[in-house]
Write a protein that binds this DNA or RNA. Structure first.
Lengths: 208, 208
DNA sequence: CTAGAATGCGAGCGAACGCTCACATTGTCA
DNA sequence: TGACAATGTGAGCGTTCGCTCGCATTCTAG
């Protein structure tokens, strides 16, 4: 009844040809997803868009789900890479500036491929790779909790974990809803200001 | 290529029999969704679970999508009814208490049918009824903006619309992520306290 | 009572689509 | 250059599933 679901590739490409094929398949997956939505995502369509035969697709991806999983994984890695790369520079800033910097990072991470991000979060059924998304979440949480704990005595909070949860939720959602509802708002500095204000006032480190 | 999508029922039931049928179909839809997820939702399965023939189902729902739409609509209406019913009592409270009351309302609205809510927000592709969800969103936004505008001179904010956006996003997400990630957290009063704190400090009306 | 409307039934049609398989082509290595 | 692996091909199989249609049953109004 339930279709067999393996997420790891059936075969790793060993030659350059194969790698190119895999790349173009993933690229096509993204394009089809953005253009036709998850309902319009068929393996045949992806193969066609990639300029590759359906057989080749199934040489590297055991099933349709694996295709989407790989795409999610790639996208998540790009986003977390963008964040982690800048994180070191942020950790030692004074809190108010650190907060602003982290929020800014979140904004820019969501600007990598908004259309893809949108379709992935809005339409794709939360299949196996839900774990991947949670992981990203968890990384953010641990990171924020770490920053809070390090400066705990300067902050007007009692429970670091709880505060981290509240903050991550709030920021994530502000960025997300901006990206989804009003994509151009992401560039509006007033939004960044306001999100920063929310955080700093909550933490008791606002200057105004 | 794209399947025909009409969302309104093909026919309204005129006798009690028909109304019962429609009810049991919707009920079955919810149960199948919760039990098998969106992928496991087939019209035949729904009809079977409802103890109704597939033909009867298509007498009242023109297609599968309409089925889900009707369910979303019903769920949204229940949630907004729960909120709107209490809203009048809240509007005239002092801000700090009003904030807490509104947040509490959001919490309890999400406790109506968490399993269904989860499957609807996590798995159901945002089909036609996306509008319905946005509408709920919009109602919340207007409501909060109204409350803020009424007490504007007591508040440390500059832009009412922006503040409403930030607050609605933040609260919505805190409640949502609690419900999805840690369902039992919804009953934890410390979370409610913390969310309230976030809001009141941001607004500059916190007592501590 | 009865005609016609409302409702209920379910076998099965048709199309979409995931995926296989037998075979062809291209690359690698001795 | 030959042998074998890696990769590429696409017709089409099998299944699932949305949905129709012709007919049966139940209700309602005159």
């Amino acid at each position: 009844m339930q279709r067999q679901v393996r997420l790891s590739p059936r075969k790793r490409p060993r030659q350059q040809r194969g790698k190119d094929t895999v790349d173009s398949i993933l690229e096509a997956t993204a394009r089809v997803l953005k253009h036709a939505g998850f309902d319009g995502l068929t393996t045949n369509a992806v193969a066609a868009k990639a300029g590759v035969s359906i057989g080749s697709l199934y040489q590297y991806f055991p099933n349709k789900e694996a295709l989407v999983s790989a795409l999610i994984e790639r996208h998540c890695e790009e986003m977390s890479a963008a964040i982690l790369a800048e994180l070191a520079n942020v950790a030692n800033l004074p809190i108010a500036q650190g907060a602003r910097a982290v929020i800014e990072l979140t904004f820019s991470a969501h600007a990598i491929d908004p259309a893809l991000h949108r379709v992935l979060t809005e339409q794709v059924p939360r299949i196996g790779k839900l774990a991947k998304l949670r992981e990203l979440d968890n990384i953010s949480h641990r990171m924020v909790a770490g920053m809070l704990a390090a400066r705990r005595d300067e902050l007007a909070i009692r429970d670091v974990e709880l505060a981290a949860f509240v903050l991550v939720s709030a920021i994530e959602s502000i960025v997300h809803r901006s990206a989804l509802l009003y994509p151009d708002k992401l560039k509006d500095p007033r939004l960044l200001d306001e999100a920063t204000l929310l955080v700093t006032r909550y933490l008791g480190v606002a200057e105004n």
